[in-house]
Design a protein around this nucleic acid. Structure first.
Length: 335
DNA sequence: GCGCAGGTATTGA
DNA sequence: TCAATACCTGCG
């Protein structure tokens, strides 16, 4: 299956966006499990050239016969020359959604070219697209884990969470894990003390490994557990995309461990609210350098400025500014 | 050995 | 509203 759209897959995968860790590399493909029509499917994508994405999929060994029909139907729909962007949940549509293939990059580049400050970004980021979450809850957990943390570290934490509490799935290409549901994460042990109290000395070898803190989450572990509880009992993950940006922002920011930066990441990468302008120390330095003569402006003001100035392109501008700064050497200069 | 890492929660003017 | 501070922990 081929998806016809300009994209730099490697750049998009490895740009460190906080929606999700990069997918696993197998050969020349990026692979991960995506739940489509309630069936976990292993998606394998690789870059054919700048304007084509090649897409293969596998069913779990235990599920071989369950959704073949569904998949077969999807294939015919997606194999046409257009990527149907209806509401139909198909493999092609889902991959197009995740890699934001229907976003008009050329139009965006025209927009960037109109602003002297933004114009150089295209040169460093051509083909970079939003890498949207395959699952909003995974995006929330990843985003909470990413706060005041290094990419290397939160990425490992998320992988451990999947191995410990996700569903183990055997595919022809190997073993993968799904991401656990909120109801599962809300009831795991928070730390080794809680675990020890519950299990006692009977399992000394395995003891103190089946808890959130052992995933290297530090003080974020209790936030994550409480957030999972709220998302199980009080907040419906699927109501959020129906809300206005403002309402969604307030709703998400009420979760423990979620401040303004993380809330915007969840809205942008997890739900595709393009008007979000996630602002952290780096974006603050970059924007301040480009637009405010390096003046010290609060992160919150930077966020307001970005949303006001860039409108529906805010999310993309944030993404491009960050990577432009990183690749051009501007970031080192601002340090 | 020590400080940082793409913030958040808490506290006190 | 806003500034100041503590906070887990693995990697350089």
């Amino acid at each position: 299956m081929e998806l016809n759209s300009q994209i730099n897959l490697k750049l998009t995968q490895e740009s460190g966006q906080t929606s999700q860790a990069p997918w696993q590399v197998k050969g020349n493909s990026y692979c991960d499990v995506v739940e489509i029509a309630k069936t976990p499917i292993l998606i394998k994508v690789h870059q054919k050239d700048i304007s084509y994405l090649n897409l293969e999929y596998e069913l779990p060994r235990s599920n071989q016969n369950i959704s073949i029909d569904e998949v077969a139907i999807e294939r015919e729909i997606a194999i046409g020359n257009e990527i149907a962007i209806g509401n139909e949940v198909t493999i092609g549509n889902e991959v197009a959604r995740i890699f934001d293939l229907n976003f008009d990059l050329d139009k965006f580049y025209t927009y960037l070219a109109e602003d002297d400050k933004l114009e150089p970004a295209t040169r460093f980021c051509r083909g970079l697209r939003l890498f949207l979450a395959k699952d909003p809850f995974e995006c929330m957990v990843s985003s909470i884990a990413s706060a005041n943390n290094s990419i290397a570290r939160w990425t490992k934490s998320v992988a451990k969470i999947k191995e410990k509490w996700g569903e183990s799935l055997e595919f022809p290409s190997g073993r993968f894990y799904s991401f656990p549901r909120p109801s599962v994460l809300m009831s795991v042990y928070e730390d080794e003390f809680e675990e020890y109290e519950a299990i006692g000395r009977t399992m000394e070898i395995e003891c103190c490994r089946q808890n959130l803190k052992s995933c290297g989450l530090g003080y974020r572990a209790p936030y994550m557990k409480k957030a999972s509880e709220l998302l199980t009992l009080e907040i419906d993950l699927f109501e959020i995309p129906k809300m206005s940006y403002d309402e969604a922002f307030e709703t998400v920011k009420n979760l423990p461990g979620v401040g303004p930066k993380v809330a915007d990441c969840i809205l942008l990468y997890g739900y595709g609210f393009r008007e979000a302008f996630p602002s952290d120390v780096w974006i603050k330095r970059i924007v301040s350098h480009l637009y405010f003569d390096d003046k010290d402006i609060s992160v919150d003001k930077i966020r307001e400025f970005g949303m006001e100035k860039f409108g529906d392109y805010a999310g993309y501008v944030q993404l491009y500014l960050f990577h432009y700064a990183r690749k051009s050497g501007l970031m080192n200069k601002l340090k």
